[in-house]
Design a protein around this nucleic acid. Structure first.
Lengths: 222, 222
DNA sequence: CCAGAGCTATTTGTATACATTATCCCCTCA
DNA sequence: TGAGGGGATAATGTATACAAATAGCTCTGG
């Protein structure tokens, strides 16, 4: 991570995820280069990567803009993610090891700790959640599947609204994870796939509900 | 396509697809730059794109090599492709227009013309096939889905062995397309999805069978 | 007042030189 | 003789200068 292009990638990505670079804003290589303290070369590199992650889009005329995620876009991304994560869960169940299962259980324990606190620790929840899904993907053992999902899991809108999830939504997510663990323990791929599909789609609906509440908030912030 | 980086991308990609750059070979920026008549900058650009298409892989130490597709890799790619193309077919059926349907029919007519010839015109078949699936993807109307499938459809091994498909396999592919057209005409998403799934998986098995026959041939050519 | 052409300013594309890093080979020393 | 270190080598990472292209503006002519 000491490479300038990696630093630029992380920096720009976090600017987009945090909303510092708002959706639709033009991204200019030289301005970002100065902001990141590097030259245009690594910034170009970073922008190409962000473009393949669909966080940045380029017009036919070679200018780049922060991707504008409509509600339909988010629905689309969640739907595709549900399909691919379900496939990952199915494969993972077939090849699950005891070691990996222990790591998955530990991740869900971290989630439990985070959401049990008087004030839910959203950061801890997100971190545990990331680990939970990452281990499943790892056990699924497909470089290609991991690469495809990679472009879907980092969604600016989701990150920005994760703090608005209700406590019940967090609890429900945790208990769905428990059910997934049970399916993995039984090496039941069909069950794991079904739970994962509904798990991701439910997360979308939680997002969509929260979004209605936060839309005016987001507008006010601009 | 007049951009130097686009030319470099196409040139290197075709070197890989044709086998001129064999699997596992190290790719060196400066050598390719000289070969393409451009500087290293656009070559770097092209290599990053090829890398995100999984045609080129980089070791942890930043050196790049032509991706080596094992039989398992190919099976994996086909399986994921069957899942995503099936989803595309389902969506396309729901939103099919008469104009798009006509284009799909025309593409399959081109395929019919190509395979009816005394000596099957494999190039014409591949072109018609590409158009057939491209229109479906277009009607499905998801930038994201198109982007995900983009990394799966250009497979060096498949391109190199397409010429070994049997005439029966080509006929069968054409008639499966006809069945897909019927499903689209009825706007039956479930049917279209099921046909597409088996269509892609069957293509994989045709490839796997042909692969056994052509393995020694490929070795002899090297 | 509108339309269109041309100019200017801005931004990206490309080339090249230099810096950094990793590999490989050789040489030394135990 | 084998292992470990150090230097040469080769490749990539980065910076910068310059070229090309595009958008937006202004100015002119109808």
């Amino acid at each position: 991570m000491s490479r300038a292009s990696d630093r630029a990638f992380e920096a720009i990505r976090s600017m987009i995820l945090s909303g510092e670079l708002p959706a639709g804003a033009q991204v200019v290589e030289e301005a970002l280069a100065e902001k990141c303290g590097v030259s245009r070369t690594p910034v170009r590199d970073a922008l190409r990567r962000l473009e393949s992650d669909l966080l940045v889009v380029r017009t036919d005329t070679q200018r780049s803009f922060v991707a504008d995620w409509s509600l339909d876009d988010v629905a689309d991304a969640f739907e595709l993610r549900s399909i691919l994560e379900a496939e990952a869960a199915r494969r993972a169940a077939d090849q699950m090891t005891d070691g990996a299962l222990a790591r998955i259980r530990a991740a869900n324990r971290q989630i439990a700790d985070a959401i049990m606190k008087p004030v839910p620790d959203v950061g801890g929840f997100l971190e545990g959640n990331r680990e939970f899904h990452a281990v499943i993907l790892e056990v699924a053992g497909s470089r290609r599947l991991a690469s495809l999902l990679g472009t879907l899991i980092e969604q600016p809108v989701v990150w920005r609204t994760a703090h608005h999830y209700s406590r019940e939504a967090l609890y429900r997510s945790h208990s769905e994870h428990d059910e997934l663990i049970a399916a993995f323990a039984r090496r039941d791929g069909g069950w794991a796939k079904a739970i994962m599909t509904s798990h991701i789609l439910r997360a979308y609906h939680a997002y969509a509900e929260a979004h209605g509440l936060t839309a005016e908030f987001q507008q006010a912030a601009e």
